[in-house]
């Protein structure tokens, strides 16, 4: 039992450790407002070494260097956008975890909506056409008196 508890505690500790950010205490700014801004900025900047982690999460040395630069620029009085522009100027738009909204990314932003709209229009056209066709040939015209009589005669003659 003791062993189980110990294992669970260790597992829990490991989980907490792995979800913690890559930010080291000695990197943090004394001013909590400034530090929050730095965290918000670095959460949206990609670590180019690990690619799917932000520099806030990553413990790669390049991510650390960039976190330090983000904080230096903030202390120097840069606005949040100026700090982000500084990093984008060096590493390109790929460094942004959220793709920017500009002509080259219009396909990315509007593409899914456009495809959904085309699909909906095609489905609507298809359904409307099927409905008009169904109405057009709702079945053969009813039998005339003469035809009915012939049918009855045929049915009467038919062997059981």
């Amino acid at each position: 039992m003791k062993a189980v508890v110990a294992t669970l505690t260790l597992l829990g500790a490991a989980l907490i450790a792995t979800t913690a950010a890559g930010v080291e205490p000695n990197e943090m700014l004394a001013d909590p407002v400034m530090e929050t801004r730095a965290r918000d900025i670095s959460r949206n900047l990609r670590c180019l070494v690990c690619q799917n982690q932000s520099i806030d999460d990553s413990n790669a040395s390049l991510a650390r260097d960039l976190r330090v630069i983000v904080r230096e620029r903030l202390v120097a009085g840069d606005s949040d956008t100026a700090v982000i522009d500084y990093v984008v100027a060096r590493y390109g738009d790929f460094v942004l975890l959220k793709p920017p909204f500009k002509p080259i990314t219009y396909a990315l932003w509007f593409g899914p909506v456009a495809i959904a709209l085309i699909g909906a229009a095609a489905a609507a056209a298809f359904l409307r056409r099927r409905r008009t066709r169904d109405a057009a040939d709702a079945g053969p015209p009813p039998l005339s008196q003469d035809e009915r009589r012939r049918l009855e005669a045929l049915l009467k003659d038919a062997p059981e």
Partner: peptide
């Protein structure tokens, strides 16, 4: 040594 110039060049590996 600091890697700062590397960052100015966009070096990531």
């Amino acid at each position: 040594r600091s890697g700062r110039v590397g960052i100015d060049w966009g070096v990531y590996g």
